[in-house]
């Protein structure tokens, strides 16, 4: 899932300075299950914003709603009705949700309430960890199912670096060293020898470095109207 966290209230009040009637829009998918932008978080944030603005002597109305999926046009279409009365939309969706709203409602100010942080999973209740950076060329087959792109602080392909100590990464002692994990996993599977192979430099053009990425599936596209 996409994991996000709410921006500090002070950043949001500064962002919303001057607006008087705002619609807070949550998303019922990833950010709901990571407790950043579901129905309840929309309620908490909206209430907090109303109180903060009332205390500032600049009362602001914050209406609340949550759509099932902010990143698809169909799901946000119903918001069009009644949008005129709001001078801004505060999205509690991930960055994709914010942009979907902004694309669908180009005349509206659409503002992000969350800091979208990573693709990951909950490792225990209340703790989420990164697992993938969408590098566009998955190497999990080589690395025993542990991603060195997102989990090694130096994105090494021939790790571990010299800072790995006691199973932990040199960057912080609470973060496991990805290459220690990779070694343990492959060793357990009797495949540790594979780590002796030198992995060549990666082609990062499939990643962010290649510019905005796009996937096209011709089999799924709608036929051109003139052919229908």
């Amino acid at each position: 899932m996409i994991v996000a966290k709410q921006k500090p209230l002070s950043e949001l009040t500064a962002m919303l300075d001057g607006y008087r009637n705002v619609l807070a829009v949550g998303c019922g998918t990833c950010v709901t299950v990571c407790f950043a932008g579901g129905v309840k978080e929309v309620g908490i944030l909206a209430s907090a914003l109303r109180m903060a603005r009332r205390l500032d002597g600049q009362p602001m109305s914050v209406a609340e709603t949550t759509v099932q999926r902010q990143c698809e046009a169909e799901y946000i279409a119903p918001l069009a009705e009644g949008l005129d009365e709001f001078d801004a939309i505060l999205s509690l969706g991930c960055g994709v949700g914010v942009q979907t709203l902004a694309e669908r409602f180009p005349d509206k100010r659409v503002l992000p309430a969350l800091d979208t942080t990573f693709m990951g999973l909950p490792t225990e209740q209340g703790v989420w960890e990164e697992r993938c950076q969408g590098c566009g060329h998955c190497v999990l087959d080589i690395t025993g199912g542990i991603c060195p792109v997102s989990r090694c602080a130096k994105q090494l392909m021939n790790g571990p670096c010299g800072g790995s100590q006691g199973g932990m990464c040199e960057v912080d002692s609470d973060t496991p060293c990805a290459w220690q994990l990779i070694w343990e996993r492959l060793d357990r599977q009797g495949l540790a020898d594979r780590l002796l192979e030198i992995q060549p430099p990666r082609d990062w053009s499939t990643s962010r470095d290649g510019g905005p990425r796009r996937i096209v599936r011709d089999d799924l596209r709608l036929p051109p109207p003139e052919d229908v």
């Binding site: 619609l23 019922g28 998918t29 709901t32 299950v33 579901g38 129905v39 309840k40 309620g43 909206a46 109303r50 009362p59 109305s61 914050v62 209406a63 609340e64 709603t65 949550t66 759509v67 099932q68 799901y75 946000i76 119903p78 918001l79 009644g82 009365e85």
Partner: peptide, 27 residues
């Protein structure tokens, strides 16, 4: 009038009750 609810676009509920809402947790 500080909280004009426009309802929940996910289920069409005109005024979702927040804490108890069935779609509270999305999935």
């Amino acid at each position: 009038g500080e909280i004009p609810s426009i309802g929940c676009a996910a289920c069409g509920d005109p005024a979702p009750s927040l804490a108890e809402s069935a779609h509270d947790r999305g999935d």
